[in-house]
Amino acid sequence: MKLSRKNVQIKEDLITRDWLAIDRTRMANERTFLAYLRTFIVVLSSGVAIIRVEVLQEMYDLGIFLLVVAPVILLIGIARFLYVRRHIRKYFTVK
């Protein structure tokens, strides 16, 4: 499917291979976000476990640290996902 230059925001027409590359980039972006999400869940649950388990009370400060770091990891993942998605749409969207 070829599009005219006025419909695509890049300088040349896209061929099927280019559309597939864009789709792979989108899927890679989603996988990266899911990796950030998975890391957030593990760090958050580790922090909660350290705080709640009595045997690990000497590591209480580490649990608090993990609870503080977990949302930061999630925010970085969301920001990166939106940044890459915006760039993909900026350069490869059909008007």
Score class of each variant (00 low, 15 high):
Ile76Tyr: 02
Arg31His: 10
Leu20Thr: 06
Tyr36Ser: 08
Val53Trp: 13
Ala35Met: 13
Ile50Pro: 00
Ala79Met: 04
Val94Arg: 07
Ala28Tyr: 05
Gly47Ala: 00
Ile73Pro: 03
Ile64Lys: 15
Ile64Trp: 06
Lys90Phe: 06
His87Ala: 12
Asp61Ile: 03
Ile50Asp: 02
Val55Arg: 15
Val55Thr: 12
Arg86Asp: 09
Ile50Gln: 05
Leu34Asp: 08
Ala49Arg: 08
Glu54Leu: 08
Thr93Gly: 07
Leu37Trp: 09
Met27Lys: 15
Leu82Tyr: 11
Thr25Cys: 13
Ile64Arg: 13
Tyr36Val: 04
Lys90His: 10
Glu54Asp: 15
Leu34Thr: 08
Tyr60Leu: 02
Ile88Asp: 01
Val55Ser: 13
Arg86Val: 05
Ile22Gln: 03
Thr32Cys: 09
Leu67Thr: 02
Ile22Ser: 00
Leu75Pro: 01
Ile88Pro: 03
Ile73Tyr: 05
Val69Cys: 03
Thr25Lys: 13
Leu82His: 11
Ile41Lys: 09
Arg17Phe: 12
Leu14Trp: 02
Lys11Tyr: 11
Ile15Tyr: 14
Ala21Ile: 07
Gln9Ala: 10
Trp19Ser: 04
Ala21Leu: 13
Ala79Ser: 12
Lys90Leu: 07
Val69Glu: 04
Asp23Gln: 10
Asp18Ser: 01
Ala79Gly: 05
Glu54Met: 03
Arg89Ala: 09
His87Gly: 08
Thr32Glu: 10
Val43Gln: 00
Ile15Gly: 04
Thr25Tyr: 08
Asn7Trp: 15
Leu66Tyr: 04
Gly47Leu: 00
Leu82Trp: 09
Val53Ala: 02
Gly47Met: 02
Val8His: 04
Trp19Asn: 00
Trp19Glu: 00
Leu14Ile: 01
Gln57Leu: 07
Thr16Pro: 04
Ile76Pro: 01
Tyr91His: 10
Val55Asp: 15
Ser4Met: 07
Met1Asp: 09
Leu56Ile: 05
Glu12Asn: 14
Ile78Cys: 04
Ala21Asn: 10
Trp19Phe: 12
Val42His: 14
Ile10Met: 10
Val53Phe: 14
Tyr91Trp: 15
Tyr83Gln: 11
Ala79Pro: 07
Val42Leu: 15
Ala79Lys: 09
Thr32Lys: 13
Phe81Thr: 05
Gln9Trp: 15
Ala28Ser: 07
Leu74Tyr: 02
Val53Met: 07
Arg24Glu: 08
Leu62Gly: 02
Arg86Trp: 14
Ala21Pro: 00
Ile22Pro: 01
His87Cys: 08
Leu3Met: 02
Glu58His: 12
Glu12Ser: 14
Ile22His: 05
Leu20Gly: 04
Phe40Gln: 07
Gly63Lys: 06
Leu56Trp: 10
Arg80His: 12
Ala49Cys: 09
Thr32Met: 11
Val68Pro: 00
Ala28Trp: 01
Val68Ile: 10
Arg24Phe: 09
Leu34Pro: 06
Asp18Cys: 00
Val84Tyr: 06
Ile78Tyr: 05
Val72Tyr: 01
Leu67His: 03
Ile15Trp: 09
Val43Leu: 01
Val68Arg: 14
Arg5Asp: 06
Asn7Glu: 15
Arg86Ser: 11
Arg17Tyr: 11
Leu14Asp: 03
Gly63Arg: 06
Ile10Pro: 01
Gln9His: 15
Lys11Thr: 08
Lys11Arg: 11
Val48Asn: 10
Thr93Lys: 14
Thr16Trp: 13
Ala49Pro: 05
